[in-house]
Design a protein around this nucleic acid. Structure first.
Lengths: 93, 93
DNA sequence: TTGACAGGCAAGTGTCTACTTGCGTAACGT
DNA sequence: ACGTTACGCAAGTAGACACTTGCCTGTCAA
């Protein structure tokens, strides 16, 4: 299991999560073309593939293979506990 | 304004936020000594000072000077919107 | 005023990381 | 069978980042 925070540290990976939030279950090539058009991101296929690996290792993305297609799904599970770690506590004297 | 996600990417900085959650308004030397004993962190003063700068640039820590002391306070404000960015949306087909 | 204390500034170093480059493999259409 | 499509693997590179090192500034107590 990778580091969720480090996975979120990269802006491109956050845009990928935005894209999967907008349309869940995309393939690698779909994500590539949609990022290029909608977000003006010139990232290569290999770059985005490596980003997806990082997101998957962190548990933020799950995949399902079907023939030669690999569909990517966002998983918000690891997101919830990471913020409440610092909430519900202090006030400023 | 710095990147909140990048500020959270480093484990030492997260422990610093833990420490400020436990006891708000500490000085640099307080944080150093308490991290050394409670968390077995051998980070130097300069290292922690630089981490505090990153956290302050990201808006996660605010400071107040008083004579030769500088007190550090956690600010959870930037934490709340960053998660809901990806919530309230998709389900898995 | 002198020394100790709390912190700041800035250059240098090693490691990590995002990205590229190039090739390889499996699935599908015709 | 053959070319195309969708994706994987792995080495190399440039830049970012965490940390160190060394020195400096300001504050307080004696």
């Amino acid at each position: 299991m990778g580091d969720v925070f480090k996975a979120l540290a990269d802006p491109t990976r956050r845009i990928i999560l935005d894209e999967l939030t907008d349309r869940n279950g995309q393939t690698l090539f779909e994500i590539c073309s949609r990022l290029a058009t909608k977000h003006q991101l010139g990232s290569s296929r290999q770059a985005i593939s490596q980003h997806l690996d990082v997101l998957e290792t962190a548990g933020l993305v799950e995949t399902r293979r079907e023939g030669r297609y690999k569909f990517h799904y966002i998983n918000t599970g690891p997101l919830e506990p990471i913020i409440e770690r610092w909430l519900n506590r202090p006030e400023r004297p």
